[in-house]
C-alpha cells in the first residue's frame, strides 16, 4: 500500500460511554504517529462517561485544532449506529463513513418512549451525504474475536483496509503488538482479520 505522508485528514469518532471509543482513538493515533504522521487527537471526558455520547477526533498531517465543526471530517468512525447518524453533520460532503451496525438503544428507547431508527434508515441517511460507507456487525465480530470491545478494532481494521487512511492494516497490526497489553493481543489480532474479511464481503 502506498502511504501519503503529506495527506491531511480529519477523523471524527463517536460512540457511547463505556464502549472504548477513546481507547480506539488513542490506538489509531499511535498507529499514525508511528507511521511518521503529524498527529493531534482530542477527546472530551467527564459527564459523557455516564452512558452519554463520547466524541473524539484525530487530525493527521498538520492540523492543530483538537475539535471539529460540522462539515470538517473526512472520515467518520461510528462505534454505534445511532451515534453515527447523530455525528453525520460533522462529515464533509463525500467523506467516508465506517460504522458499527449493532445498536445500543438509549434509555429513552429501551423504556419505550422514543423510536430508534431502523438500520435501513441509518444507512439511507448516511449514503445521502457520504462518498462511501461501510456498516459492520462490530459487536458480533468482536465477540467472535473474544470480546465486545474487540469490535472497536474490527472497525479500525475496516477503515485501515479501505485504503482511505494514509496507512494500512499492517501499521495497525504493529501498533496492537506494541501498545496493547499482552492478554488483549490475541483477540485484537483476530478482530483485525475479521475486519479485513468484513470489508471484502
Amino acid at each position: 500500500m502506498t502511504t501519503d505522508k503529506q495527506k491531511r485528514m480529519r477523523i471524527y469518532f463517536t460512540g457511547v460511554g463505556g464502549q472504548g471509543t477513546l481507547t480506539a482513538t488513542t490506538l489509531l493515533a499511535r498507529t499514525a504517529m508511528d507511521a511518521g504522521l503529524d498527529v493531534v487527537a482530542g477527546e472530551v471526558h467527564g459527564m459523557a462517561q455516564r452512558g452519554g455520547v463520547v466524541e473524539s477526533v484525530l487530525l493527521l498531517g498538520g492540523w492543530r485544532s483538537p475539535k471539529l465543526d460540522f462539515g470538517e471530517a473526512d472520515v467518520l468512525l461510528g462505534f454505534e449506529p445511532l451515534e453515527t447518524l447523530r455525528g453525520l453533520p460533522y462529515l464533509r460532503a463525500g467523506g467516508a463513513v465506517f460504522s458499527s451496525a449493532d445498536p445500543l438503544p438509549p434509555l429513552s428507547v429501551s423504556l419505550g418512549g422514543a423510536h430508534y431508527p431502523s438500520m435501513e434508515e441509518v444507512e439511507a441517511q448516511t449514503r445521502r451525504v457520504a462518498g462511501q460507507c461501510h456498516f459492520v456487525p462490530c459487536r458480533e465480530l468482536g465477540l467472535k474475536a473474544g470480546s465486545a470491545q474487540a469490535g472497536n478494532t474490527v472497525l479500525l481494521s475496516v477503515a485501515c483496509a479501505s485504503g482511505i487512511l494514509p496507512f494500512g492494516v499492517d501499521a495497525l497490526e504493529a501498533a496492537i503488538g506494541k501498545y496493547l497489553p499482552a492478554k488483549l493481543q490475541a483477540a485484537n489480532l483476530k478482530a483485525l482479520e475479521l475486519g479485513m474479511a468484513a470489508l471484502r464481503i
Binding site: 457511547v16 452512558g51 452519554g52 455520547v53 460540522f70 462539515g71 445511532l82 451515534e83 447518524l85 447523530r86 453525520l88 453533520p89 462529515l91 464533509r92 460532503a93 438503544p105 438509549p106 434509555l107 429513552s108 428507547v109 422514543a114 423510536h115 430508534y116 431508527p117 441517511q125 445521502r128 451525504v129
Partner: peptide, 10 residues
C-alpha cells in the same frame, strides 16, 4: 451537510 433529524437523545 446532513439535514436536521429528530433522534432519540442519550
Amino acid at each position: 451537510n446532513a439535514q436536521a433529524m429528530e433522534l432519540p437523545g442519550r
